[in-house]
């Protein structure tokens, strides 16, 4: 199994505050990794470093066994950002247009979307259950529908790696379960490597293959079972949350 992501001795400061300190880990191809940790623990920063949106102060990040190179990694990563609030959706575009934009880099400069591209877009909208909203404007979707449109966009370029920042915020419970079912089928059937940040401790234990727990430093990286056994939760969140976690 090859390393899809290799992070070595990563350090990052925001102004004077240390956000990440000496973080090293690797993610294998086919992994399904939940990133947890307290607020301000550096989870989103880590993701932005991996995506190349931020530059580390020191240390290395290698993706697909090469240093981050914006030209080469292009469409191999699908990214679902944290959802902005409702007021930011004045953009006059339909679900179809947004999902299609996920294939922009794959199509290449000066080329139009081919029939193959449009079929792939339709297929991903089908799989994510938003095909019936394809001609609806983004402004006219509910939170959950919009979320699925963003996930469809991330998947539209057929990425090898899917990275998500709290993907189920604002989604109701039933939709959440459906969503996690969909994720694990992507992981198991298509072999898609998935990384996501979550605050839902109960979910990570049930769903993911590995947990990465971050509080400025790397607290734990390994299976959920070991994470529970080693009682990191108490150290991070206190007894109350820890006992809730054990109930699941």
């Amino acid at each position: 199994m090859k390393n899809l992501i290799l992070v070595e001795r990563l350090n990052f400061r925001y102004q004077k505050a240390v956000v990440l300190e000496d973080v090293s880990f690797s993610v294998d191809s086919g992994d399904y990794l939940g990133i947890i940790g307290p607020n301000g623990g550096g989870k989103t920063t880590l993701i932005k470093l991996i995506l190349g949106l931020l530059k580390p102060d020191s240390g290395n990040i290698r993706l697909f066994t090469g240093a981050i190179d914006t030209n080469k990694r292009s469409f191999r990563i699908g990214y679902v950002p944290q959802m902005p609030s409702q007021k930011d959706f004045i953009f006059p575009a339909t679900v179809h247009e947004i999902v299609k934009s996920g294939r922009t880099a794959r199509v290449g400069l000066f080329k139009r979307f081919s029939r193959v591209d449009l079929e792939a877009v339709d297929q991903i909208m089908e799989q994510t259950g938003i095909i019936q909203y394809k001609d609806r404007l983004l402004a006219h979707l509910s939170g959950g529908e919009r979320q699925r449109a963003y996930i469809a966009r991330a998947l539209a370029g057929n990425p090898d790696l899917l990275i998500m920042d709290e993907p189920v915020i604002g989604v109701d419970l039933a939709a959440k379960e459906q969503f996690y079912g969909f994720l694990s089928s992507l992981n198991q059937e298509l072999g898609l490597t998935i990384l996501f940040i979550t605050h839902e401790l109960g979910v990570v234990a049930k769903e993911v293959k590995n947990i990465l727990c971050l509080n400025r430093r790397l607290i734990h990286h390994g299976s959920p079972e070991n994470f529970i056994k080693e009682e990191y939760l108490e150290k991070l969140y206190g007894n109350k949350v820890s006992s809730m976690f054990h109930m699941h």
Binding site: L53, F75, P81, F91, A93, S101, T104, L109, F113
Partner: peptide, 22 residues
């Protein structure tokens, strides 16, 4: 016309465009 899909993506989500290597 030539950069329409790129301009669309950048306008909608500049971060995504950067990640896609545009």
């Amino acid at each position: 016309g030539g950069f329409f899909k790129e301009f669309f993506l950048i306008s909608f989500d500049e971060e995504q465009a950067k990640i896609n290597g545009i």
